[in-house]
Amino acid sequence: MSGVTLSSPHLPVQPSVGGVMRGVLLALIPGTAAMVWLLGIGVLINIAVCVAACLVTEAACLRLRDRPLSPFMRDWTAILTGALIGLALPPLAPWWIAVIGGVSGIVLGKHLYGGLGFNPFNPAMVGYVVLLISFPTELTLWTVERADVATTLAAQFGGLGASALDAVTAASPLDGLRTGLSQNLTVDEARIASVFASGGWGWVNLGFLLGGLWMIWRKLITWQIPVAMLAGLGIMALVFWLIDGDRHADPLFHLMSGAAMLGAFFIATDPVSGATTPRGKLVFGFGIGVLVYLIRQWGGYPDGVAFGVLLMNMTVPLLDTHLQPRVYGQGKAGRPDR
């Protein structure tokens, strides 16, 4: 059915898909800035390459599927997908990593299912997981400290291999914790530095938290998913930390490291693939939080946001069917006072 209509309501509608996505992109700025400050210009290059790859792929897919270009190219969703994948990549990853991530996100995560609105999985996380599985080494090239422009360019475009970068790369705090714990060190010994020490991931997470709160305030996202996800992660961390503080990091560490905040406010809140009822959102978010902890603690990957989100995406139809809100006049019906 065409959308062109004279049907009520007649008033102009303020929000648009593009508007919402632009808002989300704006909200990414503080966290992104912290990452650039922490890790160097590579972050921005990753985003740029990834966004470009996503846009070109989006256009190609729309062409192939015989869809009109203009409304979909202007909806900003491909740009957001690109930006999110770009943010998930280590700053020294070669350029083709970003390209492959963007292309797989858009093709496998979005258009194979019918494009915008029909994808059951979060496209950005599909793209990231493809990379994680196919190029595990390249995805560990996190720098200890800010890489200078020359090194970055050499690593991203000069074909400098992973081994050549050993001098400047190191494990992220989550990686370090994992490795340390597997070597039977205690949390305190294994932890490289506090998350808020200079170069700490805490600042990055704080940046994304700030952007996320702004989005809730501007009604770009609802509070349920982020709050529930952080609660899930926090509660799991608290319980295990109370049980054995030597073997388990404290809740603050978990909430402020890795992709916790980025995931809670920007990734898990992808509307298309997430739960859509208020109670469904709570369960969806909480589930992701719990899964993130389980994967961080016992899984094969340092961070669990991507897998947590994708796993919970699978439960969405179930959640939406069984956790509907109460309809007016159904169930509890009003009775006269007397």
Partner: peptide
């Protein structure tokens, strides 16, 4: 203008 697909934003 034509409508976009539902993005399930809620």
């Amino acid at each position: 203008e034509p409508a976009m697909p539902c993005i399930r934003c809620g």
